[in-house]
Design a protein around this nucleic acid. Structure first.
Lengths: 149, 149
DNA sequence: CCATTTATGTTATCATGATAACTATCATGA
DNA sequence: TCATGATAGTTATCATGATAACATAAATGG
């Protein structure tokens, strides 16, 4: 959770918005968006946990799978697509490998690099997870917005 | 960052949305919101770091300050308002105390509890931070939405 | 050709979220 | 009253994000 249950009061927003030339409505919109995203992330994390995944682990599987012409990607490529740091990618790929969802092998063309590819289990896990994932996303957007405090 | 630079393709979304009765537009909206919130959080984290704060440390200061009739709150009350776990609150309050932004004292009425109050420095830090915070929120909302991949 | 720079991945360390298990205190009720 | 249960805060441990520093390999350029 990265936001308040009760948003900063309208008065507080208004005071500072006026003083610094910011639009109070924009601020309230941003706060509501943050609150909403926060709740959605919480739902997603719980969902992923049930499937033995996490946000990042799931995204890694998606990114490898959706590359049409290639069976594998390098850790660096995956990290760039997901916008995550290299050490986090190292750790995440090793855990996915340990769980049998991907294979990690040395690159034949570059001694520094590796190749991460989905296993059959990894692809299956992804396909098992995608429907619920999209359903969760869709459902969140169907709900009415939270009200400002 | 908790989302892809390039969103799942329209095709991928459409396929699963159709198969499971979810609205593709809702899914795309949710993905865009997540991406946007993700970038905003990154901006906010960088901003707070400049001010020697973090999301949570900032929220703690706000929550204590905005209680009109009271000079202090208990850790438990703060944790509930921010929706964060008790151990995280323990750690965060101790670090704020170490930095001289709050005081932590034993509750006179409840031997289990404590009272967290803003110091003058803490209030000043909050007031120094609020304008930029609201300006950042307002600015993010003024920018055009990211485009779907 | 070989020194230097750049790129890839890993390790070490830190920040910040969570839960489980614990201590100490308060509240309840037979 | 005193056993039991509930509540407040802490500790220990884990997950997952970051940066800095490092080893190794590739690329570049004099």
């Amino acid at each position: 959770m990265f936001f308040l249950k009760d948003l900063p009061s309208q008065q507080m927003v208004g005071t500072y918005a006026q003083a610094y030339g910011a639009d109070p409505d924009h601020i309230t919109s941003a706060l509501l968006m943050m609150r909403r995203a926060s709740l959605l992330i919480r739902s997603l994390d719980a969902f992923f946990a049930v499937h033995g995944l996490s946000q990042l682990r799931f995204l890694v599987l998606i990114v490898i799978d959706r590359e049409p012409e290639r069976a594998s990607l390098t850790p660096n490529e995956i990290a760039q697509r997901i916008d995550v740091s290299k050490p986090v990618m190292t750790r995440t790929l090793q855990s996915l490998q340990k769980d049998g969802l991907i294979t990690l092998s040395a690159s034949p063309s570059d001694g520094r690099s590796k190749e991460a590819a989905l296993t059959a289990d990894g692809l299956q896990r992804l396909q098992d997870t995608l429907p619920g994932y999209f359903k969760l996303l869709s459902g969140e957007m169907t709900q009415p917005s939270a009200t400002a405090g």
